[in-house]
Amino acid sequence: MIQYALKCAEGHSFDSWFQSASAFDKLVQSGMISCAVCGGPDVEKAIMAPSVRNARKDRDARALSAPASPAEQALVELRNKIEKNSDYVGMNFATEARAMHDGDAPERSIYGEAKIDEARKLLEDGIPVAPLPFTPNRKTN
């Protein structure tokens, strides 16, 4: 695996991992890489320094880096607020949302996952739902 610092034509910077340098090249040539911030298709490698680890540093240095932009920070804060103040219902989201709307379950803040046709049906039936700008963390045992 290789990590590249990338930038788009709009000046947004972000990092991404690739299986190899040739895998990155193939993805760029096929138009499969887009900006993580704006979705723009014009992405290229940014100048970056090699990553050299000091074996004596604390193991916590391997943790993911802090958000790089105000937009990323806002997404982190939104995710934290939703996860703190809502119940994760997983793939039962559509069923739970419908039950609350129909009065069959107590109202509460929920988040989860739904298939696109389930979400569309909820909206068609007047049940207020909105997509999240992130994928929920999967709850596992």
Rank of each mutant, 00 (worst) to 15 (best):
A9G: 03
G11M: 07
N137C: 02
S51W: 12
M100T: 01
M48C: 08
Q3N: 10
V28W: 00
R79H: 03
K81M: 13
S34V: 13
L6N: 00
F134W: 10
S51K: 13
A66H: 07
H101E: 03
A21R: 14
I110T: 03
S109K: 14
F93I: 05
P70V: 02
K57P: 00
K26H: 10
A63H: 14
V43P: 01
P67Q: 07
V76I: 12
D102E: 14
D104V: 02
H101T: 03
E118T: 04
A68G: 15
P41W: 05
I127R: 03
R98H: 09
A36K: 07
D42I: 06
Q3G: 06
D87H: 13
G103P: 06
K115E: 13
A36V: 07
A5G: 09
V43M: 01
E72L: 13
N92T: 08
L27T: 03
A114P: 02
D58P: 00
D25C: 07
D25L: 15
H101N: 09
L75T: 01
G39W: 05
C8I: 07
M100P: 01
D102H: 06
R108G: 06
D58T: 13
P67D: 04
D58Y: 04
V52P: 05
V37Y: 04
K7I: 05
S69E: 13
L132F: 06
D60F: 09
A9K: 08
I47Q: 14
D58E: 11
L6I: 02
D60L: 11
V43F: 00
A71Y: 06
A71P: 04
D102C: 02
F14A: 04
G11R: 08
G126F: 06
L27P: 01
I2S: 00
A94V: 02
N54I: 08
F134E: 04
S22K: 12
E113Q: 14
K45N: 09
E107N: 14
A49P: 01
A21N: 15
P106N: 10
K84W: 05
S34M: 12
T95C: 03
D102T: 07
S20E: 02
P136I: 00
P131N: 11
S86M: 10
S51Q: 13
F14L: 08
I127W: 03
K45G: 09
R120I: 07
A74I: 02
L6D: 02
H12I: 03
S86H: 14
A68D: 09
R120F: 07
R108E: 11
A66Q: 08
A99W: 03
A114W: 00
D58I: 02
K84L: 09
P128E: 12
